[in-house]
């Protein structure tokens, strides 16, 4: 069996599952934050800060950040392997794809660490 060196889990089925699981986590996080904003009788900075300050929410937000980055990587990988290849770009296809994927991976990891700082350090 041929496995792709750049896919998240080197397995299509694993990536497929990661994409679905992370989607559900993100859906739950967005729903929770959205409900918190809408349900607040009076919405301002104190309520906004309190929403993210509780320890369970910090853990939830960190799991959401991990999910976001895994989700983003699987998606970006799928799109780049579909369009940035030798069939579309000729001989330069592989080099262009790997360079683009490197840039996307750096952005993803940077956002993961930045997001962890924002949501974790907010006690």
């Amino acid at each position: 069996m041929v496995t792709n060196a750049t896919s998240l889990g080197r397995s299509g089925l694993f990536d497929w599952l990661v994409q679905r699981f992370s989607a559900l986590v993100l859906l739950a996080w967005i729903a929770w934050v959205g409900t918190g904003v809408i349900a607040a009788a009076e919405f301002g900075y104190p309520q906004w800060r309190a929403l993210f300050a509780a320890a369970p929410m910090q853990i939830f937000s960190l799991i959401a950040m991990l999910s976001l980055c895994a989700h983003a990587w699987v998606g970006v990988w799928t799109v780049t392997t579909d369009y940035l290849n030798e069939a579309h770009l000729g001989k330069a296809g592989t080099a262009v794809r790997l360079l683009t994927q490197t840039a996307c991976l750096l952005l993803t990891l940077s956002c993961l660490i930045w997001g962890a700082r924002i949501f974790w350090g907010n006690g």
């Binding site: 301002g44 900075y45 906004w48 970006v76 952005l107 940077s110 956002c111 930045w114 924002i118 949501f119």
Partner: peptide
């Protein structure tokens, strides 16, 4: 892809809005 590229912008807004009353 659009949302992926917007991640830094959204994180910046989260950071700013959570930093202080003035940032919010």
């Amino acid at each position: 892809v659009l949302l992926f590229l917007a991640m830094p912008l959204l994180l910046y807004l989260f950071e700013l809005s959570l930093s202080s009353e003035a940032g919010f």
